[in-house]
Design a protein around this nucleic acid. Structure first.
Lengths: 269, 269
DNA sequence: GCGCCAACAG
DNA sequence: CTGTTGGCGC
């Protein structure tokens, strides 16, 4: 089973790119973040026509918003409020094989990496703490197969950013964020599939700023988009080797691209 | 000599349409209104590459703005403030043959056709009064060949609108506006070329609202864009017959069209 | 309906 | 730099 995740930065603007990606990669399920539209504005029609007839959306006007689109039926669709906010940053569904799929859009965190002066950064830290605590229960309750994907807005490792030194004090790569992400990984017993399959020092990025004149030339990327699997799926995730995992960076060259590229994992179920 | 006028409703957004029109119709000079950009933002480069190397612009951020682009040199470029406002509604230049060309964008006038409650309508009436008075002097000073073109935002005749009755109290076709336009025509001894060549009851429209679902089917147009000539040019304007005059309504079907279409007149000089 | 801009967010 | 919204003007 092939799972994809993509921060699409407006699904209405980029529905043609989504369709192109689905045609090229034919994942069984695609998790989107930053759809930036209300549920009723989500372009479900062309997705259904493309063979993805099962769609779960949690959207709002303008900001954030997540969705799961799948070829096969989605069961037990749920959304969860983190930090007591109803801001469309999580949606979950169970896939036919019994895999529980969680799709996240973690707060970006603003500019200043100081929770005392920056509410957005405080929100991000709180969100990650809650995600870690929630992971504990999730690892127990859904004792079985689970996948967590999404734009977690943290690049945890030295080689997940273009310059570890220059980004140490930049939101997305600060030690406090990295520690919270590692705590979530540990408490949920999650496997960070990308880094298990492709160890450091190989660089891995899934996001490149719009501000660069030539994103590929400067290559100042960050690995913000992740796929985590629960212990019962560890073998299915890793047995295929690195061929089972892909960062589709050619999509960054498409017309009017998202600043994130899609990431896929094929589970050997 | 072929003269064109077009309210382009943002020249930056529609520069490709302008280039296409220039290629198709090859006018000697094109007058644009509602360029909606500052002088330095005007897309002069591609116009020059297309053979229109002489450009005069009077633009500002966001609203209004007029320009003249020509294959041959423009002399004595002037802009005139009407109603004491510096709002980029007029630009003039002299063409190589000695023709004085005036390009206008008359105020739209708002919704309520009552100058006592609607300042915009009052401004429009004042503008037309000033245009009429200015025409007197212009007819004397530039005693010779002159052309006045532009979006005058008035449809003066019964068959210049889709329903004379339904528009009698709608700004652009009210009796007070029509009388002021007729006064300007008389005081400047101008010839309204379109209606001399194509008499009523034939309908003539140069503008169709964006709000119609199917502009051609409903065909609720208005003739807002005009080409007037001074007495010394009357023969040159009319001798070619109606073949010399054209309303290029096919441009309304182009991608992301302006709500106005270009109008051309070939002067038999 | 469709331009523009400013404000906000990423 | 690239999205969103909301207000304004036509």
């Amino acid at each position: 089973m092939k799972i994809a995740t993509w921060n699409i930065n407006s699904v209405r603007l980029r529905i043609d790119s989504v369709l192109r990606f689905l045609k090229e990669e034919a994942p069984d399920v695609l998790c989107l973040q930053e759809i930036k539209c209300r549920d009723e504005q989500f372009p479900a029609r062309p997705l259904r026509s493309a063979g993805y007839e099962h769609i779960a959306v949690s959207g709002q006007a303008g900001y954030h918003g997540v969705a799961i689109i799948a070829r096969a039926p989605l069961k037990d669709v749920e959304t969860r409020k983190f930090c007591g906010k109803d801001d469309c940053r999580h949606i979950a569904a169970t896939l036919p094989g019994g895999v529980r799929l969680h799709n996240f859009y973690v707060p970006s965190g603003g500019d200043e990496p100081d929770p005392a002066v920056n509410d957005k950064f405080a929100h991000k830290l709180d969100f990650m703490k809650e995600l870690a605590e929630w992971s504990v229960g999730e690892a127990q309750t859904h004792s079985k197969k689970a996948v967590l994907v999404g734009d977690l807005n943290i690049a945890p490792r030295e080689h997940d950013v273009w310059s570890h030194r220059q980004l140490l004090n930049v939101v997305s790569h600060t030690p406090v964020e990295v520690e919270l992400m590692n705590a979530a990984l540990e408490k949920g017993k999650w496997t960070d599939v990308a880094r298990e399959l492709i160890p450091e020092p190989e660089k891995l990025y899934t996001w490149w700023s719009y501000r660069a004149r030539d994103w590929r030339a400067s290559n100042r990327g960050r690995r913000l988009d992740h796929i985590w699997t629960s212990p019962p799926l560890r073998k299915a995730a890793l047995s295929g080797g690195r061929a089972a995992f892909a960062i589709h960076d050619h999509c960054r060259d498409w017309e009017r691209p998202s600043d994130h590229v899609p990431v896929t994992l094929t589970l050997d179920l």
